[in-house]
Nucleic acid binder design. Sequence first.
DNA 1: TGCGTGGATCGGGATCACTTATACCCGGAC
DNA 2: GTCCGGGTATAAGTGATCCCGATCCACGCA
Lengths: 284, 284
Amino acid sequence: MDTRALLSLATVAETGSFSRAASALGFTQSAVSQHVAGLERTAGTPLLTRRPTVAPTSAGREFLRHARQILAHEQAARAAVARVTGRDQDTPVSVAVTPATEHLLPVAGRLAAVMVDDAAAAAAALTSGRADVAVVDGVAAPRDPLPGSGPDLVVRVVAEAPIGVLLPVGHPLAGRPGLDLASLTDARWLDTARTTCSTSELSSAARLGLRLGAAYSGTSAGTVAVLVRAGHGLHAAPADLVPPDGLAIVPLTAPRLVHRTEVRVHASPRAAVLALADAVGAAR
Amino acid sequence: MDTRALLSLATVAETGSFSRAASALGFTQSAVSQHVAGLERTAGTPLLTRRPTVAPTSAGREFLRHARQILAHEQAARAAVARVTGRDQDTPVSVAVTPATEHLLPVAGRLAAVMVDDAAAAAAALTSGRADVAVVDGVAAPRDPLPGSGPDLVVRVVAEAPIGVLLPVGHPLAGRPGLDLASLTDARWLDTARTTCSTSELSSAARLGLRLGAAYSGTSAGTVAVLVRAGHGLHAAPADLVPPDGLAIVPLTAPRLVHRTEVRVHASPRAAVLALADAVGAAR
DNA sequence: TGCGTGGATCGGGATCACTTATACCCGGAC
DNA sequence: GTCCGGGTATAAGTGATCCCGATCCACGCA
């Protein structure tokens, strides 16, 4: 099996057209057609529908899942070899960052930031070789790893703080010394996925279904504050945060969860990567 | 990049010889040599040492990690396509089982058992397509998944019981109503990895280092009982187990952990696989 | 019916991937 | 030193393959 054919298949599936895939890859349409035909011959079944539209069949979807993995590993293999042979000394360090950690990056130095939504996406970028370092934050139990951590990665904790609930100062619960999340499942929560301590992270770390209110798909902590103050829903935040005007933070007593910021690097990083990881760890 | 070359490289690395790899794969030694040379040319660096012995270089080790993933995904892609096209109707259902769950398999029916050590190894067998179903047991917090569970897998819990500590009846702690694991880190534990509620699973689920005594690398619950009775160390067990002669089981009150048995299948199983999963689930 | 779009197919030159045969390298025996 | 044996690299030849340009074909549309 040749990975060029897999790339053709994947590109056709993405672009929805043999000719567009061909021009994207610098092949002729004929070659792409032959690639796909060859894969279908070895698979023994059609992988794409042609008419009325070009789209994966059910067999094709399964096949593509693995094909994409193979292509990712092919790139990762190249990157890994370049890393150990040190032939990447002059290429910029590529950093995967979650929205809330972007400000930790040093301004100086040759580096390329890869924006990712959460720790799991950062792990994918790291293992596929798209990133050399990841600076991620997320919600987990105190001794649990953040999602997506695995072997072959060196993890370094930059900051860790217990989690609290962000409430308007006038809210009936704002005066409490602490709160149990289980008693708040019927409250309305902002529906966030990319913010610091996003409700989706909170919900999955706590393994609790939370009732969702207004949805916010951005990443800005300021907007979250405005929405909470306006009563559109609750949101979590690191308990050591200075509460924005008009808001209070009440610590979560159960379940015991923390917001953690981590730097992750491959087990065998080049010097420039290590230096960057140290800089972020020290910046804090 | 051609996966045949990757297979040659991997086989050379495994057998430690170009000629042995060649005969194992049905190639000539010359072809294997050219495969490896081609990969080294594209990688731009030697991947294997030739003399005094054939072994991966550091770049080769990194490369091989990804190469093996690619080969696994190639097989998995074939298996996945065969699954959805139903061309595997007459092949036996392949089941990955942990040592403690083997007795749950129905005796009748065409099936092939793949023995694995733990839930994580079963997950690897499942995603690589080596197994259609997995019947696994392991230790985890009550609402946590067992290690190695992921998306694209349908999980069904067969049995779940709290965990207790297996003690000789004469042991000073044997009369207690419950025990805290944190107070037992200095006790001596049997060093097991493949038994039901093995100490390595217990330790990693509880995130506690336990002091290890005698090591037992087998899987027999009977042997574990004999070793505990003889005072070689403590061991965990499902709390609902009928204690063997001369032993008592004291429930663990903290951390709250359970021993769980699960059946896992791919998201789109063929009928024969589903039937088997149901049979195991019903057997209990 | 004729036309435009887009995938499939055909023929042919360049390249590739094997095989066989042979060269090369190194350690050990004499 | 020389020869031998186990083992990898290289050379030459051949059939398969890859990819291109050209053309065919199916379909939707006016």
